[in-house]
Amino acid sequence: MRSIVLTDSQFEIAFQVTYQATNFDELRLRKLGITPDDLEWLIVALRSAHDEVDRAAKVRIEFQDPSPEGERDVASAATMPHESDPADVVRIGLPAVWASRWPLLTELVMSSLSHRELFLRTGYQWHEMESAVQRLEGAS
């Protein structure tokens, strides 16, 4: 199982950049192996963890192999507590395929929109987004 650790602000930035992909047409997403339903699922899974992340200093995202029932079932593992984690760490489970898909998705967004456009859409500076997105690449 692969995992990455983000600060709460890096998680929020990665979420905001990811959310911008909802404005892209289906063909661009499919070239990355992502359907609109896949993207919607990822957004919902990340958003479902948002309240827990607000109370944490760090977020551990674990990319897990799918259960026999299918990869989307791993979403039920979002914000799963683990006794070995400090109290200020939230653990989020995502299907293993997102370890490679998520960085590609954020790269598409960041390469397709200008620095100014991304700032206007997310409220974050380019260097902040670049730093957070680079952390996602460590999982693939």
Rank of each mutant, 00 (worst) to 15 (best):
R116C: 05
V53C: 02
S131C: 03
R2W: 06
H50L: 11
P68C: 09
F24H: 10
E52C: 06
P81L: 07
L136Q: 06
A77S: 06
V53Y: 02
R2I: 08
R2Q: 12
H82C: 10
S131I: 01
E83L: 14
A96H: 07
S9D: 12
D25L: 09
V97N: 03
F24L: 14
T35M: 01
N23Y: 14
D65E: 13
I43Y: 00
S112I: 06
T106C: 15
Q64W: 10
M1K: 09
L118M: 14
A21M: 07
A21P: 06
S100L: 09
L46V: 07
S131W: 03
E71M: 13
E128P: 00
V89Q: 08
R72H: 09
I13T: 04
I61G: 01
R60A: 12
V109G: 02
L46H: 00
S131M: 06
G93Y: 09
V44M: 08
L29M: 06
G93L: 11
V97Q: 05
G123K: 09
P68K: 03
S67P: 03
E26F: 00
W126L: 05
E62A: 14
S67R: 14
E128S: 10
S48R: 11
Y124M: 02
A87N: 10
S111W: 08
L46W: 01
S76A: 13
S48Q: 03
A87C: 05
L108N: 03
F119M: 09
D65W: 12
L104G: 13
A78T: 09
T79M: 08
L108P: 01
Q20H: 13
V97T: 15
Y124P: 06
M129A: 06
Q64V: 14
R116Y: 08
F24V: 12
I4S: 00
A132G: 05
K58T: 12
P81I: 10
P86G: 15
V90Y: 03
I92D: 01
R91S: 14
H50N: 09
A49E: 00
V133P: 02
A57Y: 14
G70R: 15
